[in-house]
């Protein structure tokens, strides 16, 4: 943990994410207006003291909408990444540890999943089902585990042949102990790194879906959705596009920086 504070870029990332999480949790106390309340007398108002990030085409306060949008982005990011980690780790470990038919079936299925362009697969699923925040989380989680499953499988393949695993086998240690005490803790570092970067990816995908109108539906707000509304007025009201764009950029960047730092911190000391 100390090392992450020494890495300045990662530290900045942690601070930024902490701030966004804080804002998301305490949204009702931070937002100066109701996110959905309209005031047509101040349509497309430029940033001012009353509306620090301006208003949109229905006179809604952009800052308040972004504060509530942080909830959507964080929820989608964390839950989608959690789902990704659960599925990817489980399939990767089963595949790597048991080998044989289980390995062949899981890896061919993974190959098939990798053949689809993920974003279009998500578009397809969302087009068939109702586009709402839960479906978005679910579908991102269900489509982005493939890389992790492969990484975990490769790690397990190498760990299960390590001498300490063989020694435990010779001591007649139970299968579940081998699995959860000996193998899982030793493949955890790439999983953590993948999760950190995965959260950023999920937020980006959610923004993309919302931008296309397939993500979170109005009157709920999300950063991608504000961005989408802003594109129609980009010459008249630049603040509608700029601020959500910047927040998405910095959030995803922060998660990637944290992920990179974790990779550096967790990797080298393993067997020294």
């Amino acid at each position: 943990m100390n090392k992450i504070f020494k890495n300045k870029a990662a530290f900045a990332g942690v601070v930024f994410i902490a701030a966004v999480v804080f804002i998301a949790v305490f949204a009702p106390f931070i937002a100066p207006y109701e996110p959905a309340s309209q005031d047509l007398s101040v349509r497309l108002a430029a940033p001012s003291a009353a509306h620090i990030l301006g208003t949109d085409d229905l006179g809604r306060d952009v800052f308040s909408r972004m504060v509530y949008g942080a909830r959507v982005s964080m929820a989608v990011g964390f839950f989608a990444a959690l789902l990704t980690v659960l599925i990817g780790t489980l399939l990767g470990m089963v595949s790597g540890y048991f080998g044989g038919i289980a390995d062949s079936v899981i890896m061919r299925f993974t190959d098939i999943m990798l053949c689809f362009p993920t974003f279009f697969l998500i578009l397809l699923v969302i087009a068939f089902f109702e586009p709402n925040i839960y479906n978005v989380m679910l579908v991102i989680g269900l489509t982005s585990w493939t890389g992790l499953a492969r990484i975990v499988r490769a790690e397990v393949l190498s760990i299960r042949e390590r001498e300490f695993v063989l020694a435990s086998k010779m001591l007649a240690v139970s299968k579940s102990r081998l699995f959860f005490i000996h193998i899982l803790p030793n493949v955890i570092s790439p999983i953590i790194v993948y999760a950190a970067i995965g959260i950023g990816g999920a937020i980006l995908t959610e923004s993309g879906l919302s931008f296309l109108g397939l993500g979170v539906q109005p009157p709920m707000s999300s950063w991608g959705q504000i961005l989408m509304q802003g594109k129609d007025y980009i010459y008249a009201a630049w603040w509608l596009s700029l601020f959500p764009g910047i927040v998405i950029l910095f959030t995803v960047l922060s998660f990637n920086l944290i992920g990179e730092a974790l990779r550096d911190i967790l990797d080298p000391k393993e067997y020294s």
């Binding site: 001498e163 020694a167 001591l171 007649a172 102990r177 005490i181 803790p185």
Partner: peptide, 30 residues
């Protein structure tokens, strides 16, 4: 496990790096 035990070539990989020595040794008791 009560008849044959093995000692391996690479001592650096012979012990689980995430476990204290006590846990590694207690494993022998099942």
């Amino acid at each position: 496990s009560g008849i044959v035990q093995m000692i391996f070539q690479n001592p650096y990989a012979s012990l689980n790096p995430k476990l204290k020595i006590r846990s590694s040794l207690l494993e022998a008791f099942g």
